[in-house]
Design a protein around this nucleic acid. Structure first.
Lengths: 266, 266
DNA sequence: CCCTCACTTTGTACGTTGTATAGAGTACCG
DNA sequence: CGGTACTCTATACAACGTACAAAGTGAGGG
């Protein structure tokens, strides 16, 4: 069995050809019976399955069933599950909606648009947040997304290396924020206990164990946060707060930052 | 089979008692044969296994074998794997080294110490980065860590809710940074292809597919980054860059920030 | 025209996972 | 000393990715 949740294990050449596949590349004359499916159909079925039930629901057997085919048939189209995940990633990157902010738009607006697009992408395809991707599949989707997002940092006086770092930093933030939000949702869905019920079940016992004098800050701040959002955690607030922090952090790098800007420390 | 990588599924009361277990709580007189192990021993074995081989190596069978016991024996000590993960998390949180920065130290220094501690923790226990934890186990480790880390934000003029948000934001950043670094290492270890070999295998094919005119920014910036660090990615740089951004972002929230400033009460 | 053989599709099988279930052995309490 | 609450073990199940081999299909070469 291959390692789960890793990606891009197999033959690089084969994977690249699949990533950049287009109708024209088909050899047009094959020996055996014509294929009843297409790589696109397989990828689409897989994405649909993962969208609905997460990575746990994405099994080769399930994909095959959705396509009306036996599991092993998939291996004619795709080398294995790891490569299928690469194709899925590239596919959703390629198709994601991109805000066309002009180069004349304020940089905070442009960068915010990139963050929002990515957050929306994670919320539409929750399995993306579970994926591990070092050495991302270098397909058209990944490239198009990278090209587009770098655009938000172009013309700000950043050198090329810093542009890349800044983008990575921004996307990293969006990823944790989305992951936290999605984890919270997943727990709600799976656990049969709502947040309130969970607290109700924990509180009496916790009071026996927990010494408020031993953890003064934790009790004070924990209490205040629990009151502020009527629960454990507010994803929208965390995103808004974090994005503002990221923007202010980047602002310190950007030479001229005309009116409306927030003063920087230090 | 239970959901993988989720945590805290079982009976809350039982889990809480396990988290806050101490020698004294043992009833001292039990009916059957004395237990040959302890919960601590199980947790320690599990942590050791996960440290060495990641979450993939952490199987109930492997833990049992390390303890010289059959797999099902573990279920006398621990309700299931999810709860074991909770106990592992709390245990390493409790034992992690904590820098004792005085309240008089500059806030950037204190916050940096918290970030560094957490990065070190992830690097020592890579499986932490793979874990999903919404509704964290409310054990002594989690509480102690939270209490300690809030201290870095105390006396800066932030209200309680903002202190919590700031800490969450900081820890989120450290987590992505660590995860990215660990993913990179894992790929290097598993893939039998070094980064250079991987590039060498991809480049010729990529040049056939990839149109530099279609992705001008991507080629320029990608090239520059690849040259700057002699590879795909430099974890140390990403961490340093990101931490600086986070600190600057937080600075915008903190009222007075002169060098060597005295913390002000709220 | 038909045979050959590359190719698609399928069925079966293996090793691995967490843990349900049932049985066997042990030692304290009444 | 017997009953019983407990520990530990053995076996079993369903689900996973996919190796392997057999069966079916249809275009190209003679």
């Amino acid at each position: 069995m291959a390692k789960e949740r890793s990606s891009g294990a197999g033959d690089p050449a084969r994977t690249l050809e699949l990533l950049w596949r287009d109708g024209a590349t088909v050899p047009a004359s094959r020996r055996g019976p014509r294929q009843g499916l297409t790589v696109d159909a397989v990828v689409e079925a897989a994405v649909g399955l993962a969208d609905e039930g997460g990575l746990d629901a994405l099994t080769m057997r399930a994909v095959a069933q959705r396509l009306g085919v036996t599991p092993m048939t998939l291996y004619t189209y795709v080398p294995g599950k790891a490569e299928l995940l690469d194709l899925m990633l590239d596919a959703v990157f390629l198709k994601m909606p991109r805000t066309a902010s002009g180069v004349d738009a304020p940089w905070r607006e442009r960068v915010t648009a990139v963050a929002d697009e990515n957050r929306a992408l994670y919320l539409r395809h929750p399995w993306l947040a579970e994926l591990r991707v070092h050495r991302p599949p270098l397909g058209p989707g990944v490239m198009t997304k990278y090209e587009h997002e770098l655009g938000a940092f172009e013309g700000l006086g950043l050198d090329d290396v810093t542009m890349d770092s800044a983008l990575t930093h921004l996307l990293g933030f969006v990823q944790v924020a989305a992951r936290t939000e999605l984890d919270a949702r997943a727990v709600d869905r799976e656990s049969a206990l709502s947040d309130e019920e969970w607290w109700a079940a924990h509180e009496p016992l916790l009071e026996r164990m927990f010494d408020a004098e031993r953890f003064p800050l934790a009790s004070r701040v924990g209490e205040a946060s629990a009151v502020a959002y009527q629960g454990l955690y507010s994803p929208d607030h965390a995103y808004a707060f974090g994005l503002a922090r990221v923007l202010d952090g980047l602002a310190a790098l950007i030479p001229a930052d005309p009116p409306g800007s927030v003063p920087q420390g230090q």
